[in-house]
């Protein structure tokens, strides 16, 4: 019997999810014996045209990481959906939008202006901005369109499973691969490779009285390693974030940033964290409440760092 076929693709991403696969280490060699990898731009030399010529549903499983920010991302998402039996949204960007989705706080115009004109080290005297097509002597050159709004994979095509994390931790990746390759399939649409409770369930720190008098940022204080960071005034997204990562960030004395997405059943990770955090502000009137709230310098960046595209509002008003 032929080996199952697998594909890996990166859309609007940083490459970290590819490294997560590499972190499987020697297990990767095991996989390569049991699975035929038919498409993996970062590591192998297959072309888009190779994928286009594959029969429908001939890829058994495709691990798609990265958000959908360009027309190329969208095209490949649709293409791989057509060609794959199982499409897995792999990593925070594919699941919730990830860091790229923070582009939804601004606009395409502002991003292009900043990158191509305004940054101090840019040398662009003619103020040239990228165009989707340009005529040259040899013909017409095209590049993909850059979208104004970043979307998740699930908002673009039908997704079978979601593996959260930025990146998903190696142990979880390994167990997911074993399950899928071994035919041990959970219900469609499930989030896999993660726990069903919030990070607080795994975190070993001592949870105190949660009275927040003042919010401090991680560069302002060196937190103690025993007690919960929230009790020390540092915003830790742990209570509103799905667990399964082993609380590695907390073990390094840094707060959880929310990369595993919302806890099962929660509609909007950012709003829930906002509620949980502010409910415990030590304030009895509007002025005190505002004063403490001012300590949250960037609410969207804090509460929706990895999940803006999947949130209720999805983007800021243009």
């Amino acid at each position: 019997m032929a080996n199952p076929k697998a594909a890996f693709y990166w859309a609007s991403s940083c490459g970290g999810c590819e490294i997560a696969v590499l972190e499987l280490g020697t297990n990767l060699l095991d996989i390569s014996k049991k699975v035929d990898i038919v498409f993996w731009p970062v590591a192998l030399d297959f072309k888009y045209s190779d994928v286009e010529s594959m029969p429908e549903k001939s890829i058994d499983v495709c691990f798609f990481n990265g958000a959908i920010q360009t027309s190329e991302n969208e095209h490949m998402a649709k293409l791989l959906r057509e060609k794959s039996k199982i499409l897995v949204a792999f990593g925070a960007c594919a699941y919730g939008g990830g860091i790229p989705a923070l582009a939804n706080t601004t606009s395409r115009e502002q991003i292009l202006m900043r990158v191509y004109k305004e940054t101090p080290t840019t040398d662009n005297p003619n103020g040239i901005l990228p165009q989707t097509k340009v005529e040259v002597a040899e013909g017409v050159l095209t590049i993909p369109e850059f979208y104004n709004t970043v979307r998740t994979l699930g908002q673009t095509v039908d997704v079978d499973y979601y593996v959260p994390g930025c990146p998903p931790v190696a142990e979880q990746v390994w167990s997911v691969m074993k399950d899928i390759v071994g035919g041990n399939l959970p219900p469609k649409g499930s989030v896999i490779g993660a726990s069903e409770k919030s990070l607080c369930d795994e975190c070993k720190r001592i949870k105190g009285d949660r009275k927040i008098k003042k919010i401090v940022r991680t560069h302002q204080v060196i937190p103690d390693t025993e007690n919960c960071l929230l009790d020390q005034g540092i915003i830790c997204m742990g209570p509103a974030t799905r667990g399964g990562c082993g609380a590695e960030c907390l073990k390094s004395n840094m707060p959880c940033r929310g990369c595993y997405g919302p806890v099962p059943g929660v509609l909007d990770q950012g709003a829930k964290m906002l509620s949980a955090l502010s409910s415990n502000f030590d304030a009895d009137n509007e002025e005190d409440a505002r004063r403490i709230a001012d300590g949250v310098v960037d609410p969207i960046g804090t509460f929706y760092r990895y999940s803006l595209a999947r949130s209720l509002l999805r983007r800021a008003k243009a």
Binding site: L277, S278, A283, D284, A289, I292, A293
Partner: peptide
């Protein structure tokens, strides 16, 4: 009140 200020 606490939630509203941060929500605003």
């Amino acid at each position: 009140i606490r939630r509203f200020k941060l929500l605003q």
